[in-house]
Design a protein around this nucleic acid. Structure first.
Lengths: 134, 134
DNA sequence: AAGTTAAGAAACAATTTTTATCTTTTACCT
DNA sequence: AGGTAAAAGATAAAAATTGTTTCTTAACTT
């Protein structure tokens, strides 16, 4: 993936820190601020948490990154990709993407309701396969 | 609704503060901590934010109250009721319940995926009816 | 390539949000 | 009514997030 271009398209300067943040987000799929800070600090030992927050928010405001809020968990951040849902295992804490037809989900709103959804957030909480086999 | 009983069933002492919290939650449907604090303070001028947090968490742990996480918004808290989804208007910030068959939503997970959902969180973000007519 | 400038990084500091600790009060069970 | 454990109140401390100022650097211009 070409992060430089993604940043430039949004008039965000391409800095090593930002490239590092995006690379880590992509590698892990979705990552919490704390984890991101631990990992990015290994590359940029002097980076501050404030810089991290500011960058992540700049990327959220320009629709490059998305915050995923999870029941009973800290938020995770991911690079925006095709609409999808998430699976959260309440037993082991694992968290992963799952492909679900979000348009269909949006079509399930009761008829007669005039709400026009532009985007939906769906998190399934439950027991993952690995934990079922324990 | 009989809040006293709901509290007793969970071995939570029935205190005026708790009854007040539950009444406010019920009245508003779902409420943020800040709003709750402003309102509960009118009844119990000496209540501390710490007490409020402690109570709300005690109620969450005993499955009496649920935290609803909303993209780009502070969490709201509601008394647990039948499974449902939420509508969040990105224009005016209005937030309301909507009845959606959550079992069907859970049945939409791809076949072959072994995840067993116990509960799902679904928030539709978009434009509410009122804002469409502006 | 060097100079300019405006955005970003770093270094704090200050808020805001949430949790912990300790003392006093109160609900609830004989 | 009295005893006890839990909850409220009062801080204070810890976490999380945001703001400010100065220094540095990316990227544009010549």
């Amino acid at each position: 993936m070409n992060y430089e271009q993604l940043l430039r398209e949004r008039d965000l300067k391409v800095t090593p820190q930002r490239l590092g943040i995006l690379t880590l987000m992509h590698q892990s799929g979705h990552i919490s601020i704390e984890d991101l800070y631990v990992k990015i600090s290994r590359q940029f030992s002097s980076i501050s948490l404030a810089t991290l927050y500011k960058n992540v928010h700049a990327m959220i405001e320009t629709a490059l990154v998305k915050e995923v809020k999870i029941p009973n968990m800290k938020s995770k951040y991911e690079i925006i990709k095709a609409p999808h849902a998430h699976l959260f295992c309440t037993q082991c804490g694992s968290f992963e993407d799952v492909t679900v037809p979000m348009e269909e989900i949006e079509a399930m709103l009761p008829h007669g309701i005039q709400f026009k959804p532009t985007e939906s957030s769906l998190v399934y909480s439950g027991i993952c396969e690995a934990c079922q086999n324990k």
